[in-house]
Design a protein around this nucleic acid. Structure first.
Lengths: 227, 227
DNA sequence: ATGATTGACCTGTCTGATAGGTGAATAGGG
DNA sequence: CCCTATTCACCTATCAGACAGGTCAATCAT
């Protein structure tokens, strides 16, 4: 008869709790009723409630502090997440490049429009360090990351910045393993400078063009990469 | 004496469990020992263990099935996540639009290149339904979402799809609250058709141009929106 | 006045009991 | 001998009660 009722109690409770928070318009740091009270309110046992709380804690909705109580976390912070089945093969790498093209391309476009003199100085310093390390033959992976991060910042779009940052974690994990990445850095090295010159000159199409050349060179390497 | 021991039990247990999975090299779908056994193994009570399991379940490490047992989830799945401080104001909305421009623009570009006849049929059906609902004066938010999702699928890039899907959750949450969204849907309505025509014709620049018009109209509304 | 003590209020954890889901072994009818 | 219905072992779901220990403020003794 009631086959539909497959929802776990802890799940219902966790939803009810979120509703409760919304309805009461609780903000960051506000205290929820004690576990005892909550069990009465929802008419469930302690364990179910505690599991619900643990679940919400894992999802960063609440924070449980021993001896104090349960507190609401910043609800205005939006958490986005997703999962990607990783298969290290050409197609996945190329797919990742497309996403990077989209996100970083937009960042570069915005950066070329809005970069400030101060940020230009910072990136120039970064590129000088990049050149120095390159000539020394040291690993440039860290300084490369810094460079892209600075450009990302210069785009002055916090949401894009956040999305791009989360993505770059994936991106790096992806590209660290397969190909010894010195090859990649060698190929893209010169474009960092030409691209930055265009950004500095607020030349949007020029910057994008250089960025696309950079990405094309990456794409070329991957396409020619035989396992 | 042992003040250092501030780590919650469930936390230790959840770490131990992850170690256990790693050491035994358990793969997706493998079954963990029963709760009873695990309590013996770790020397903790059921509640602590269950809280740990709930925690891991929230983090998509395990899956608990009633009557069956606890199973390992796909460990090769990469999870990306990030948080964004939401402030519903013009600048945040505009920033969000830029990200959508980047991600969905790329999806549309790829879709225009790679869409299959079957997918064209699906989207055509979706648009017919869209038109029908529109004429009925019913809410079109759901069908609108479906349309963009289908285009997203047609791009045939699973990683882009995943990122865009996570982002769209944020996007919708963002745009649901502030402006009564009928206004938004009215403004963007015609572009769905023109854009799709271009995609159908594999006309990449045309599709992008229509998409940008769509986004421009959104941007216009937001800019003129006074609190 | 100050510092230690106590007690109210909370979370942390364990345990035994009951309910109910699942699947395989098993018993019984054809 | 096969097929189906029952049973049983194994598991999770959930509850209630009990005790340990953290936290904080009011209270009490010096």
């Amino acid at each position: 008869m009631k086959k539909i009722q497959k929802i776990h109690l802890y799940e219902q409770v966790s939803e009810e709790l979120q509703n409760y928070i919304q309805e009461k318009e609780l903000k960051e740091g506000d205290k929820l009723p004690s576990v005892e009270r909550l069990t009465e309110m929802f008419g469930v046992g302690r364990s179910s409630l505690r599991e619900a709380l643990r679940y919400l804690e894992a999802n960063e909705v609440v924070r449980i502090e021993n001896g104090k109580g349960v507190f609401v976390r910043d609800m205005d912070t939006f958490r986005f997440s997703g999962k990607i089945k990783i298969e290290v093969e050409r197609n996945s790498l190329l797919a990742t490049l497309d996403v990077r093209r989209a996100l970083e391309g937009k960042a570069i476009e915005l950066a070329a429009k809005r970069i400030t003199p101060k940020q230009i100085k910072e990136i120039e310093a970064c590129l000088n360090e990049y050149r120095r390390l390159k000539e020394l033959g040291v690993s440039t992976s860290k300084i490369d990351f810094t460079f892209h991060q600075l450009v990302n910042k210069a785009a002055a779009n916090p949401i894009l910045e956040s999305v791009l940052e989360s993505f770059s974690v994936l991106y790096n994990k992806f590209f660290d393993m397969p190909l010894g990445n010195t090859k990649l850095f060698d190929a893209t090295y010169p474009f960092h400078f030409t691209m930055f010159d265009a950004i500095k000159a607020h030349d949007v199409p020029g910057a994008l063009s250089e960025f696309n050349k950079l990405m094309d060179s990456l794409e070329e390497i991957i396409k020619n990469y035989e396992t």
